[in-house]
Each structure stands twice: as structure tokens, then as C-alpha cells.
Amino acid sequence: MTGKIDKEPVTIQTIAKIANVSHTTVSRALNDSKLVKPETKRKIDRIAREMGYVPNYNARRLVTHRSNIIGIFFTNLEAGTSSSFLTEVVEEAQKRLPRNYSLSINSINIAENDPRISIQNFDGVIILSQSESDDPFIRSVIKRQIPAVILNRDVKSKHLNNFAVNDYLGSKVATEYAIRMGHRHFALIEGVDAFTSTHQRTAGFLSALKDAGIPKDDVIVKKGDYKPRSGNSAMRQILSSRHMPTCVITENDDMAVGAISACDEMGYRVPDDISIIGFDDMNYSKYLTPSLTTIRKPTTQIVQDGVDCLVKIIEDDGNTVMQKIYDPEMIVRSSVKQIRTPRNE
């Protein structure tokens, strides 16, 4: 005679009863929510494994009306968004999000009027904004009541969740450092003209020069696009100028890479012949030859705080607006030489 054992399915309510917590806490813990204490999360995970709990994501989506998809929107994936910045943002967002969420990477310039940008298709969106031209897209997302956080650009609104760095301060601090090192002859390689970060970093650079009594008309300014090739091209033009600067400020690290490469190709040594400063402190910057003096933009912290804010809005239907503008940090390495200031200056 064979026996038949009827085994009741393990549910969130079953786990909640054994763990002596609410079913909401169990749901959050199994979704790796930051709102659940680590020790509680470990306890619930252990009970779920021991009981053989298997989540039914399709059923959960039907009940919760959620897609479990978070959209990441960059101003423009084809122009101005460096591959290193994109990679760092996506990696940090993926690590920080609860494990039941998936990421969808998009470009604002092709998505602004896309009917698929809806609360049915995205539980929330992370907008990596670079330009005021993104504002219509941001307004469209808010109008559709999609939970959103805006990262990277200070949008100057009291009603939006916003996390960004003080680009103006960062550039000013970098230039002031170079001036303290004795430099008074500068070149600047700018980023994308349409990007707010470019204007802020240029303004910070010029402010430091003004404070030091250095005429801006004496500065060589070249346009770049935040990518290495443009840094290389701009640096070649600078090195071919009649009046060579002693220090070149690049408005991001990717252009600094191209600038250092151009120096090597044209027989100039960094920093012996010319100094270079970057901006961002990308992961590779300390491994360059020479290691790059730069401004540390706290991208990791910005993304982490933005993701935590977005998850809280989605899971708690939170209405509190969260905003923070981060001060950058000067990272001194080997690409800037200390020089003596001539007596007649």
C-alpha cells in the first residue's frame, strides 16, 4: 500500500508565523529591502530556505500590479555619456537594488514621448540628468505618477528627489590647488556644451583664476565631449599653441586619459613638462601613468542614496522629498608638478 502525503504550500504567511513577524516584514526581507534589519533578514532567509519556500514572481506581479523593473535613463547614451560613467552607475544601482528588481537602461532623447514609459512598465525610474533639456522628460514622468529620483544634476526644485555633486566647487578647488602649486599659465578642456556640469565646472575654474588675479584671456580653452578621443585632440592643439600652459584642467577623467596619451605621443612628459588635472576620480584614475590628480565625485554614494530613496518611495508609498548636494574631494596624486612662480608675476 502506498501512502500519499499532502504537503501544504509554504507561503509568506507561514514564514511570518514561524519568525514571529508580520507578513509585510517577510515580503520586504525576501525582496532584500533595506528597511529590514540585517539580523531579521538573515533569520527570515534561513526559515524560507529550510521550509523550501519558492517565490512566485509572476503571481506576485499580478497581485501587486508591479513590473519589478527599474528604468535608468541617461541624457544621451550616444553623446556625452562616457562608458566608464555609465558602467559605474549601472553596477552600483544593480548592487544596491533589492534582488527582485531588474534594470532597464535607456536614453532620454529617444524615450521622452515613448508611450511605454508608464507606471505599468516601470515601478520607478532613476534619471541621470545632464541638461535642462531633460526637464520635459522629468515633468512627463512626474505627471504619469512614476516614482522617480534625479541624480547627477541639481535641478533646483523643492519638489523632486534629487542627489548631485557641487560641480562648481569641485572645479574651483582643483584650480586653486594648481595655483598653490605655482601654476599661472592654464589651458582648459571643456565637456559637452549642452551639459550643466560643463558650465558649472568652467565657472568654478574661472572663479579661481579671478580670485588669483589671473586674466581669463590668457587661458587656452578647447572644446571636448567628455570622451578620451576629444581629450586627445584638444591636447594636441594645446601642445601646438605658441604659448604653452604649465597646467591643463580637463573637465572629466576620460578626457584626461586622452590628454595624457597625446602628451606621450608628442614627446611631452607628465608632469615634468606639463601638469594635468581631471574630474570624477573614476576607478581607473589611480592606475594611470602618472596616477591622475583629480576631483572625486562621489558617484557611488549618489547612486546608493538615490536607489535607497526610490525603493522607499516604491515600497512605502513615501511622499517625503529627499535632496542632497555633495561636496567633492580633491585627490592629489602624481600628475601635477610643483613649480616656482617667476618673480615678475
Rank of each mutant, 00 (worst) to 15 (best):
V303W: 00
N166Q: 08
I339W: 05
G258A: 08
G213C: 12
S22G: 14
V141I: 15
G80Y: 00
G224Y: 02
R343A: 13
K227Y: 04
Y287D: 14
H185M: 01
V141L: 09
D218Q: 13
M330Y: 04
D114G: 05
S129I: 06
M282L: 14
S261E: 13
G224N: 09
N56G: 05
P215W: 03
S230M: 05
V10R: 06
T320N: 13
S104A: 14
V173L: 09
N319S: 11
Q237K: 04
P290L: 11
A19E: 09
T300R: 15
I119A: 14
G258F: 03
T198E: 06
I110R: 10
Y101E: 07
Q130R: 00
V125E: 05
E190R: 10
T341K: 09
D217E: 15
K143R: 14
I142T: 11
A93T: 10
V332L: 12
I277T: 10
S102M: 13
Q301M: 12
V89A: 08
C263M: 08
S157R: 14
G124T: 08
T14N: 11
V173G: 01
I138M: 10
M1L: 08
R99G: 12
K95A: 14
D45T: 08
G318Q: 11
R42D: 15
T75H: 04
I339N: 05
I108E: 04
S291C: 10
Y284V: 15
H159K: 12
H183K: 02
L30D: 04
V90H: 04
L239H: 06
R49L: 08
E91V: 10
I295G: 02
D154Y: 07
K337F: 03
T64E: 11
N113V: 05
K216I: 11
T24F: 05
D217T: 12
R96F: 00
K156L: 13
K34E: 11
V257E: 04
F163H: 08
I126V: 14
D134E: 06
A148P: 00
D273L: 11
D123I: 11
T175H: 01
Y284A: 12
A208S: 09
A212P: 02
R340K: 13
R116I: 13
F195T: 03
V192L: 09
K143W: 00
V257L: 15
T24D: 01
F85C: 05
Y101A: 11
D32P: 00
P115H: 12
R242P: 02
G267Q: 10
N20C: 04
V303A: 10
K324M: 12
E315A: 09
S335D: 06
I12Q: 10
T64I: 01
A79K: 01
S291P: 14
P290G: 12
S133L: 07
N113Q: 13
Q13Y: 13
S107F: 06
P245F: 03
